[in-house]
Amino acid sequence: MHLDHSDDLSPAFPRRHTHSAARPTRPDGTRRALRVGLGGPVGSGKTATVAALCRVLREDLSIAVVTNDIYTREDAEFLRREAVLPPERITAVETGACPHTAIRDDISANLEAVEHLEETLGGLDLILVESGGDNLTATFSRGLADAQIFVIDVAGGDDIPRKGGPGITTADLLVVNKTDLAPHVGSDLSRMAADAELRRGGLPVAFTSLRDDDGVRPVADWIGTRLAAWTTGSAA
């Protein structure tokens, strides 16, 4: 359902949507940038996935990135050093040792960063919000991200999809990264796929090896589909 976001200030129950992140349009009525959150455990390849996505999508899309480092600005600096985007398109949010709080319980700093990028750059198509490495329960508030990707890797143990948790079960896309390592760490990819299917009730799963040429393609294609739906207004 498409909500009408006109101000709705009844004295009995004043409500309005002006300051809600979920508002999908800019003041001029055009659709704002799609906000995609990337979460997952430390070292699973979130930053590498963001870098690879920027490299394959930047020719066609206007992209910006918000990183949420735990105690440094290292992820933002890595992305700038790798020059995946011009530096003004990458910004870092500090999370006070609580990365999940900044993407779920108190999203104000991330919303500030996202809106600042929108205001200063203008005409963005896609904003990637990368969470600080966290545990399996970390999810993005719907007030911050329109869609979320959860990144795990095969080296973290092939029982992770079976263990579930909100990140695994509810993310719009589950990415199982570092498939090239599977034979070396004794992880069974088909078992991971079957467990993920069972836990996620049909939500999509992408297996990636970012060392391969165009290894991020399944994720890039998924974002492309989401973005097409977002732009036409058929997905909230």
């Binding site: 949010v93 319980d105 700093a109």
Partner: peptide
């Protein structure tokens, strides 16, 4: 302390 106004990231 849970009022979502950004305080959690600051140590004063």
């Amino acid at each position: 302390g849970r009022f979502p106004a950004g305080g959690h990231a600051h140590s004063g």
